[in-house]
């Protein structure tokens, strides 16, 4: 089986690449800019120039070297984007056949998560429990208006549109215990800011053990994890 890269790792590598290229290009341009401003500033009362008002001055003709500069920067920028095509396609398609599927339905104002266990649907609202070290595929849709489902840490998001189901995947971390926030990223009404859900990562083995034990077991397991997490929040100062 091919190693699945995590979505945030891909994103950060691209981000670094863009930032490096941006710093070099924009940095060079800025340095030239600053130098020119410094070098050609008017000193003291030097106030003479050959340019007469009452005459139309159209342009200073371009020199060959500046043309090269334009072509060169153009090529860098273009190659940047073409370089991201592979990653884009990789991010768009769920990499593993055995991805664990969770259905997500946005509504005003919250997220509903549905697991399919042996043909039975187990629903949670506002929190979702996922196994560690697994590729999770979210099938995202909306019950009412335009929402966008996404995680800040995993650097992925997808629009939740009424009437359409979209898909998005993440790879959960190897170690269980983390809790991630899912946000809504498109203004969906006055409760938009409150559309936050928790994603609790639990141990892979425990999770699948409960999952394979049948709907009733799994429901209990999920509810227990969520209530434990909420209790821990209230316990904290």
């Amino acid at each position: 089986m091919v190693e699945v890269l995590s979505t945030d790792a891909i994103w950060w590598s691209l981000f670094t690449m863009f930032t490096a290229a941006g710093l070099i290009l924009a940095g060079t341009v800025t340095l030239i800019f600053l130098y020119l401003i410094y070098r050609y500033r008017v000193k003291g009362s030097e106030d003479k120039d050959e340019l007469e008002p009452g005459r139309i001055y159209v342009e200073t003709p371009a020199k060959g070297s500046s043309r090269l500069l334009l072509v060169f920067t153009g090529i860098i920028v273009l190659s940047l984007i073409v370089a991201t095509f592979d990653e884009t396609i990789y991010l768009e398609r769920t990499p593993s056949e055995e991805a664990f599927v969770i259905w997500v339905t946005g509504f005003q104002f919250g997220w509903q998560f549905d697991y399919n266990v042996d043909g039975e649907t187990i629903t949670t609202i506002g929190a979702v429990v996922v196994p560690s070290d697994t590729v999770i595929e979210f099938k995202v849709t909306s019950r009412d208006v335009f929402h966008t489902f996404g995680f800040a840490e995993f650097k992925v998001k997808i629009d939740a549109l009424p009437g359409i189901v979209n898909s998005m995947w993440i790879k959960t971390p190897e170690e269980p215990g983390e809790v991630y926030k899912a946000y809504c990223y498109e203004l969906c009404g006055i409760g938009h800011s409150l559309m936050v859900a928790d994603m609790i990562v639990v141990d892979k083995n425990e999770f699948f053990q409960a999952y394979e034990a049948g709907p009733q077991e799994f429901r209990n397991f999920i509810n227990q994890v969520i209530s434990e997490y909420r209790a821990s929040l209230q316990g904290a100062p």
């Binding site: 994103w11 863009f18 940047l80 996404g150």
Partner: peptide, 14 residues
């Protein structure tokens, strides 16, 4: 320029 890449936009959108 970052926002022109679909992959990066997945992180930056919204």
């Amino acid at each position: 320029v970052y926002l022109g890449s679909i992959a990066l936009d997945k992180g930056f959108r919204g």
